[in-house]
Design a protein around this nucleic acid. Structure first.
Lengths: 307, 307
DNA sequence: GTGAAAGCGCTAACAA
DNA sequence: TTGTTAGCGCTTTCAC
């Protein structure tokens, strides 16, 4: 555990000179540098990152709050963040929230204590007011469209892709569209239903919508409730694929099944899908996190009919 | 940016008393505490995590080195780590290596500078000698079986599961087994071929083995070279599924295809698989990281014929 | 070119 | 119960 003082003592130079020699900031004579570096080498000296952080007042940590890593959305957003972060010198810290607002608050508190220089929320349980509150401690980025204009965000503009989906389903003469969604109320849910209503020009009926569709197997579990439809819009390829599997096993005629997120499962079964470009969401979220600009970046989703 | 000193000045109490009041360590009179906490509240005071780290000499960071997050192995090991870490107070820092030894060294150097209290390598490019070298700075855990007994590790004991695979293939009268592997030389490769040779009692022939099978699509690309086999052992369900897809598209009779890792793709197509329990590998790796014990934990793989 | 000294913000041993 | 003091290890002015 060699420290700067040790080097200072052993070389006879002051801590300041040693610091300069080691860090390379400021003038040091050739001989001094040589000696100091040599002794440092011999003693296996390394600067203490924590002390540097304290002295410079920065942690270079960026926290990424996410409920879990399995889901395509969270996984890919994370991937985008890591990609952009590559070799920037920031450390990406994973903060699992499990959708628990208490935990989110806990992370916000750590943020307040300067444990992180920025926070990226891939999912938010606490209120936007709370976020607005904590913004004074640094950049907090959301990964969905906030109500407030004052919160930086990087999100998917889903409408365009969804419109295309429903236009296509309409062209295919589909008149009974069923929906698989995760929750009753969520921004994604409302934009989905809105797009449908705009294209089909009719209000959606409650029975068209099945919620509780989160993990792949939910597709299999919910499929029996979908026999009345001629088409299904699922919230993920993995789920869509499991709907397909149920119909396949039952030897029932299959409805048109549209998935999302361009996953392997959908590819294998040749299901149409929506590419939501989550990677880009992650990339932009990272940019926002280090830029300290308050702006909102939208990435447009894209309907992929054939692959 | 209120600091302890500010509180000390404003309340008239010493920094020590304020520190005690805030942290809850040590005696403070009711009145003192009340006053101090009130002023702290009013000033929106928060202890500085970096300063605490410096004073306590710990970062509470654990670095996880991984080439990328897409692959099931890395993703699931990470998941296991995060799960075990949940609410321990450690911060899990993702260190993408891209299989680049230079980067690995870079992270080891940060480790030396106390940026991390422990390091988990899910994949290792640098030599074990290098790891042995850096061990003096703290625990470094590997996620494959090391040659040296002196390096803590959590890994999959693949032999048992693989044996079962080949026994089953033999029972099914498969006499021409093809292999899809990522690299020519790797611990996994050799254990795979060894298991085959032990069960079949014969040397493997070079033409049975196709390498360069890494991402799902590689299965599709390599499939045309597999027509001579009556069975295929692939290194992942995703890859196995793509082999299946190619045969399906060509309307060729399908060989028995065995995958690995219990992924959705294999499930959809009802392919036999090997569960390598990567989650457990991650969980144990984390335990090792905080335990500072030098031991090696093996998780046995498991053949899953029907699901 | 170099060094003294003052911080960064907090903790902890010891005294009072 | 509280305060004094001395760090933790490094950076950075500002003189010399």
């Amino acid at each position: 555990m060699t420290s700067l003082s040790d080097l200072s003592q052993l070389t006879g130079y002051s801590k300041a000179t040693v610091s300069r020699a080691i860090s390379g900031n400021g003038y040091v004579s050739k001989e001094a540098r040589a000696l100091i570096l040599k002794v440092a080498q011999d003693l296996d000296y390394a600067t203490n990152a924590i002390a540097q952080d304290l002295a410079s007042g920065r942690s270079r940590n960026i926290g990424v709050v996410l409920p879990y890593v399995k889901a395509p959305f969270f996984r890919q957003v994370l991937e985008g963040i890591l990609e952009k972060n590559f070799e920037t010198g920031y450390k990406i810290v994973i903060l699992p929230s499990n959708y628990n607002p208490k935990l989110e608050i806990h992370y916000l508190e750590q943020f307040r204590k300067k444990a992180f220089e920025a926070l990226i929320f891939t999912s938010l349980q606490v209120s936007e007011a709370t976020i607005l509150d904590y913004q004074k401690y640094g950049p907090i980025i959301l990964c969905h469209k906030p109500h407030s204009e004052l919160i930086p965000a990087s999100y998917v503009e889903r409408k365009p892709g969804y419109h295309k989906v429903f236009q296509w389903l309409k062209e295919q003469q589909c008149s009974k569209v069923g929906f698989l969604l995760s929750r009753d109320v969520s921004p994604t849910t409302s934009v989905t239903l809105q797009a449908y209503e705009e294209v089909y020009g009719m209000k959606i009926k409650a029975r068209q919508v099945k919620t509780g569709s989160v993990v792949p197997d939910d597709g299999y579990q919910l499929a029996p409730q979908l026999t009345e439809f001629d088409s299904i819009f699922a919230n993920s390829d993995d789920i869509a694929a499991n709907v397909w599997r149920w119909f396949d096993e039952q030897k029932l005629p299959k409805p048109l099944i549209v998935g999302q997120d361009c996953l392997l499962s959908g590819h294998l079964l040749n299901l149409p899908t929506v590419d939501n470009h989550y990677l880009d969401v992650g990339r932009s979220a990272f940019e926002l996190a280090i830029s300290k600009e308050i702006k909102q970046l939208a990435t447009r989703s894209e309907f992929i009919r054939k692959r």
